[in-house]
Design a protein around this nucleic acid. Structure first.
Length: 505
RNA sequence: GGGCGCGUAGCUCAGAGGUAGAGCAUCUGCCUUUUAAGCAGGGGGUCGGUGGUUCGAGCCCACCCGCGCUCACCA
């Protein structure tokens, strides 16, 4: 009897949907368009709630989704939610007549527009006394809305909250409707990105866009996604980093460029990894990594202050203080500080034994540099709660960084850590074309030896350096992880609106 | 990819080898300032899928699908 059913997958039809389709038909028969074209909103719900004394007795028009419904025969209460909050509406049959009968055909989940005057109920809740009401969009699929109540202590109690993580990620639109905290995280994410962009713009740096589809991938050690351009009959890779293109722009005469964009890495997924993720990369000419340390600590410090109005943030039992200057310590000193061993003076065998004795499992193929990196990452990094710059990275794992001016064993590279997590990665960029060529050659040897994540040789990038690139400081910040830190989320999936999932069927 | 766990009504969850359950949501009736509204009554399930064991499977076994946690690699 209901043709609409044909448009839905049969298994999706349940009595709740059937019922709503019937209501939809009834509304249409009454001449009501269940999907009209617009509605004039006068105010957001939060404006009314926050400024009740101004609004009391005055007419307002609000629009939003019905989130709760209490019908009492010839009068009803409902809550409607807009993008800013929610407000209660009150409807009386003898005042709105036919509209009240129409309202009976509406459900939780429907989007309506309401006009009426603002008042406070007997129990003190700010509400809208409805004079007219209009259906703006009929919802035919039931929304898993939970009931809420405020206890004596003012705490919100939510009953049967929609918690199934799979459904929340797959149907984020439902998650956003139903779980207010989720939306807050993404609002904060938007704010964080905007604040960073403003900061960089104010510094005079230029935001640019570089290719996502690249004939050669580079700028990081990772496995790429591969795709195919049909017209060019050419293999292309989704970028794993922006670095090599941004540095080409420095060669081209930009003195400060940045890009905030998605990178793609074809690797495992877990609490901290999504195959596509957002990176900020910044390159500034005539600067070195010391300058970049100051730049980062100032940028993050101001970000935190603007976000929280404080230089400190409480994360679990720790209070993290972002005030510059941040602690600076070399990787070898950080290891020495904790374990009293000198990684430079130790040979590979000694280091390997040390690592194994401390519970690390190392691939037999790992070279000394990677063993040191392992020891640091596993045994020292988790202790770096307060913002800390670790510098003095081995040359082998940093083929795009300049050799340290005072120590040929390491490069001018640092990573910033907060709460045991990596926040950023930066270096004095290698601009010696001959050295860069040699480093790429070394990477190719590693690749030929089976290291799938070794860098590709980018001949055009070397050619660019051969034209001359000024001394340059470069920075990368993983935006998702920064957002995780600043919103205290423990899974990257909770800071990405649509995290990667296996296909449903 | 490995290990552990999970999948039962729209949502949140119980379920002992023997007729499939609760709360909320939904429906019917009553109810004109309610708020987890209330009162009375009703409907709703391929128990993730496919095989197997059994007289009998939501429950036991195998395989598959999906999800979570975790380890390994990475940012």
């Amino acid at each position: 009897m209901l043709n609409q059913n044909d448009d839905l997958h049969p298994q999706d039809i349940n009595d709740l949907i059937k019922r709503r389709l019937e209501e939809l038909e009834e509304l249409k028969k009454k001449g009501i368009d269940p999907y009209p074209y617009s509605f004039d909103v006068s105010n957001y719900t939060n404006e009314i709630i926050d400024n009740f004394s101004e609004f009391e007795g005055k007419d307002v028009s609000v629009a939003g989704r019905i989130m709760s419904l209490r019908r009492m025969g010839k009068a009803s209460f409902a809550h409607i939610m807009d993008s800013k909050g929610r407000i209660q509406i009150y409807l009386k049959k003898d005042e709105i007549g036919n509209a009240y009968d129409n309202f009976k055909l509406m459900d939780i989940g429907d989007i309506i527009g309401v006009t009426g005057f603002v008042f406070k109920t007997k129990t003190g809740e700010i509400s809208i006394h409805t004079k007219s009401l209009e259906l703006l969009s009929k919802s035919i699929r039931p929304i898993p809305i939970a009931k809420e109540m405020i206890d004596e202590n003012g705490n919100k109690i939510i009953y049967d909250q929609f918690t199934d993580k799979e459904l929340r990620y797959r149907q984020r639109y439902v998650d956003l409707i139903v779980n207010r905290d989720v939306k807050d995280v993404f609002l904060k994410r938007a704010k964080i990105v905007k604040l960073m962009r403003d900061y960089l713009d104010n510094c005079g740096y230029v935001e640019v866009e570089t290719p996502v589809l690249q004939p050669l991938y580079g700028g990081a050690a990772a496995r790429p996604f591969i795709t195919q351009h049909n017209a060019l009959d050419m293999r292309l890779y989704l970028r794993i980093a922006d670095e090599l293109y941004l540095k080409r722009l420095i060669v081209g005469g930009f003195e400060g460029v940045y890009e905030i964009s998605k990178d793609f890495r074809n690797e495992g997924m877990d609490r901290e990894h999504n195959p596509e993720f957002t990176m900020l990369e910044l390159y500034v000419a005539y600067k070195d990594y010391y300058w970049m340390m100051e730049f980062v600590e100032n940028m993050i410090f101001r970000l935190v202050v603007k976000l929280y109005g404080s230089n400190k943030m409480k994360i679990n039992e720790h209070e993290v203080d972002f005030t510059p200057p941040w602690k600076r310590i070399s990787m070898s000193d950080a290891i020495k500080e904790k374990f009293n061993i000198d990684v430079h003076k130790s040979d590979e065998k000694t280091l390997r034994r040390f690592a194994t004795d401390n519970g690390l499992e190392l691939e037999p193929s790992l070279q000394k540099a990677k063993i040191i990196d392992e020891i640091f990452g596993e045994l020292v990094q988790p202790d770096l709660i307060q913002p800390t710059f670790i510098h003095g990275y081995p040359i082998e794992i940093s083929p795009l960084a300049k050799i340290h001016r005072n120590d040929k064993n390491v490069v001018e590279r640092f990573e910033g850590f907060v709460f045991g997590r990596e926040l950023c990665n930066a270096f004095s960029e290698l601009n010696d074309p001959l050295d860069q060529r040699k480093r790429f050659e070394d990477q190719m040897k590693m690749r030929n030896a089976g290291d799938e994540e070794a860098h590709m040789f980018d001949e055009d990038f070397v050619r660019a350096l051969e034209y001359g690139m000024p001394p340059t400081a470069g920075l990368g910040v993983g935006i998702d992880r920064l957002v995780m830190l600043l919103t205290k989320q423990t899974s990257i999936r909770d800071v990405i609106l649509f995290p990667q999932m296996r296909s449903e069927k």
